[in-house]
Design a protein around this nucleic acid. Sequence first.
DNA 1: AGTGGCTCCTGAGCGC
DNA 2: TGCGCTCAGGAGCCAC
Length: 283
Amino acid sequence: MPELPEVQTVVSQLEQKIVGKKIKDVWSDWKKKILPSFSTFTKQVKGACILGTRRYGKHIVIDLDNEYSLVVHLKMTGHFLVKDEANRTTKAFTEDPVNGYIHHIVTFIDGTTLEFSDMRKFGWLHTMKTEEVETLASIVSLGRDALSPNFTEKYLRDVLSGKKKQMIGAILLDQNIIAGIGNIYRSEALFLAGILPTRRVETLTKNEWPRIVPAIKKVLRQALKLHGMSDGDFRDTDGLEGRFQQTLYVYGRGDKPCKKCGTIIERKKIGQRSVFYCPHCQK
DNA sequence: AGTGGCTCCTGAGCGC
DNA sequence: TGCGCTCAGGAGCCAC
C-alpha cells in the first residue's frame, strides 16, 4: 500500500522528528524480519545518533552517525509511529486498530520511541554499512525515481525499447523501470494519461507517449501534498490517515461511475493485481 | 521475453 | 454463530 507519496511522507516526517536523537535500546517480537539478525541490529544501532533520512524508491534509509544505516521497506501494511510524552496517548495511537500491530520499537534516550506497526508482517528492516546501502540488491536494480527530474519521456522510451510487447500497466509497477509506483497510483496515472492499462508498449502513439510521465508525476505530487492515501492501512508518523483517497478517480471504484464521464469503471487483473480503468476516458 | 503462480501474513467480507 | 473460502497486496523467485 505505501507507494512513493506515502514513503516520502514518512521520510520527511522522520527527518523532522528523530534526527539528532540517540538510540538507547531496541525491541522486537518479529525478529525474522530484522536483517541480517536481531543481535547484529542491536549491536549496530545501540548508542548511535540519527544523522538523517533518505528514500530510494519505496525504501526508507535512516543514516546513523556510526557509519551504519537502517534500510526499511514498509511493504503493504508497515508504518512508523513516533511517540513522545506529549502525544503518546492521542486517540490515533490508542484507538486506531491499524496502529496497534507494533512489532519493532527503537527507544531514544529522551524517551521518544520510534515504533513500527505492521499488521501483515511483510515489512523488513536491514542494517548495513552506510556505504553498502546503494549496493543492496533491491536498491541497485531500481529504475529512475518517478519524481526525479531525470525520469523523462526519453528515458522511458529508451528503457522500453526492449519491452515492446509488455502492457503499460505492468511497466508502471516494475520498480526496475520506474521506482516508486504501486498498484494505486498506476491506475490513477493511466487514467490521467487517458491510456488503458492493457495497451502494449508498441501500440502507444506519438500523442500518447508525452502524456505518460507528466500524468505519473502529477498524481504522485498531488498525493504527496495530501500525505498519501490510506484507504487501508497506511498512517503517517502521527498515526493519521492521508487524504488522497478522496481524490481517487478509478482505484477501488470498480462498478461505480467514472467521475468524468459517468461510464462504469471496470476492473481487470494484470499479473495478480487489480487495475481499474474507465473504458470511455481511456483508450 | 512475457506470463502465471506461489510465498510471506492477517483481517475483512462473503456464502452457507 | 461460526466455519471455510477468497481476496488484498510489494516484490522475490521459479516454472513454462
